[in-house]
Amino acid sequence: MLTRNTFAYLNARVRSRRSQVVPEAFFQQALSLSFPEFLRLLSETVYGADLVGDSLADVDRAVTNHLARTVGDLPGLVSGEMRALVSLPLFRADLINLKAILRGKQSNKTPEEIKATLLGGTLKEPLINAMIQAPDAASVAQILQVPGHPLAKALRSAAAGNPDLLALEVALDREFFAASFERAKKLGQSRISAYFALEVDVTNLNTAFKLQALGASLPNLDGYFIAGGRYLGRAVFGRIASGDLAALDALGGTPLAPAMGARTLGELERAVRGIMLARAASGATDSLGGGLVLDYIQRKQWEASRIRLLARRAYFNLPAEAVAKEIA
């Protein structure tokens, strides 16, 4: 089991990096800039060292390289059980990226469109490119086996049954959370366990909204429910999935209460994003535990997503209102 003193070195490094996060004023100012002006402003931030060129692809490359230097290297600063713990939020990013690739294939997005949505995880760019080019989920699983990724087996097993995309995503989520709970418990990190338990609830909420949007009558809603959450039970999940959004009232008095007013998937995603960022931020005081690292990684990934979104607003000359809610 990790002791609190184990985190002293890593958290000292993380605290130094936290002082260099992009200030909120940048995001508000960037909302109204032209693309050349946006590039100039970005070059004045910590991303400037990685910004070479003046195209949209150059911005994406700068974001990818910056995340690799400031977040992706964190597991390499420690070893053993500590490395396993620090890798958890990066594996979560891999999961999100994997689902984005599978969705992108189904909706015929271009490789550039898919890559623009990806977070910094553990997977290197050549592997990401290969998965994007792969013809189907089974082929993606085969590529994922090359580095021995922990999600490769789950994807291969799930893809073999030719499930719908949502069922495939839930199978991957279930595998990730089961492994994460086991690892966090083994390492005695209750704060990390609580964070992922809340994310299970958020994932179930998201799935329930997707199911009710499909309007399909599914024989086994339980097959889409992931165990391990604390505030959203199977019964409420089933009611929401069946279209009874009044069931959201059951979330009152819980950390999920900000999502009670959501009526569309977009509204829900914005609400739960705030919930999870706030929960991660509460770990900033955990200077001798894993919460500080978790908060830093989540903050940097959110920062990168906002920069990519703002770059596209400026490049395509979209009105500020088109993305204002998404970067709030």
Rank of each mutant, 00 (worst) to 15 (best):
P219T: 15
V63Y: 01
S282Y: 05
H149L: 09
G253Q: 09
I275G: 00
R17G: 03
Y231I: 04
R263I: 06
R306P: 06
T117H: 06
T3I: 05
A247R: 07
L2T: 15
G120R: 03
G261E: 08
L310E: 02
R312L: 09
L119M: 10
L294D: 00
A171E: 01
L205T: 01
N206A: 15
A197Q: 10
A241M: 03
S107D: 07
Y224Q: 01
L211C: 10
A250C: 09
K105N: 08
G72W: 00
K124E: 07
V293D: 01
M82K: 10
N129H: 07
D54R: 15
M82W: 01
R191N: 11
V236A: 15
V146L: 14
V63I: 11
E175P: 04
D201A: 14
Q301C: 05
T264Q: 07
I132F: 06
I240D: 01
V86I: 07
A278S: 12
S79K: 12
F177L: 04
L205M: 12
A152F: 11
I143Q: 00
V63F: 05
S282P: 07
A158I: 02
G266Y: 13
Q106H: 11
I101S: 00
R312T: 14
S287V: 10
Q133R: 14
G238K: 13
V86G: 00
L248M: 12
Q212V: 11
A322D: 15
G215A: 09
K210M: 09
Q133A: 14
D201Y: 03
Q145I: 10
R83W: 04
G215Y: 08
L39E: 00
E37R: 08
A179P: 10
I226W: 00
G72E: 01
L88T: 07
E125K: 11
S180L: 13
K210F: 04
A322M: 12
R174C: 05
N317V: 08
R4I: 06
G161W: 04
A284D: 04
L77F: 09
L205H: 05
T207F: 10
A304S: 13
S282D: 15
S217Q: 11
F225E: 00
G48H: 06
R279W: 15
V200G: 04
L310K: 01
A138Y: 02
F181Y: 12
E169H: 07
L10M: 07
G289I: 02
R156T: 08
A30R: 02
V52P: 03
V14D: 01
Y315G: 09
E321Q: 13
A25D: 12
T254M: 05
R279T: 08
E326G: 08
P111A: 07
M131T: 02
V200P: 00
G104K: 03
A304Y: 09
V14H: 01
A235N: 14
T3G: 04
D136S: 15
V71M: 03
L310F: 09
V46K: 13
V323N: 03
R4S: 13
R270G: 14
D50Y: 11
L85G: 02
R17T: 04
R270A: 15
E44V: 04
M276A: 13
L221Y: 11
A184L: 09
N11L: 06
F91E: 04
K124W: 03
E199Y: 07
A137T: 05
Y231M: 07
V21S: 13
E267N: 15
G266W: 12
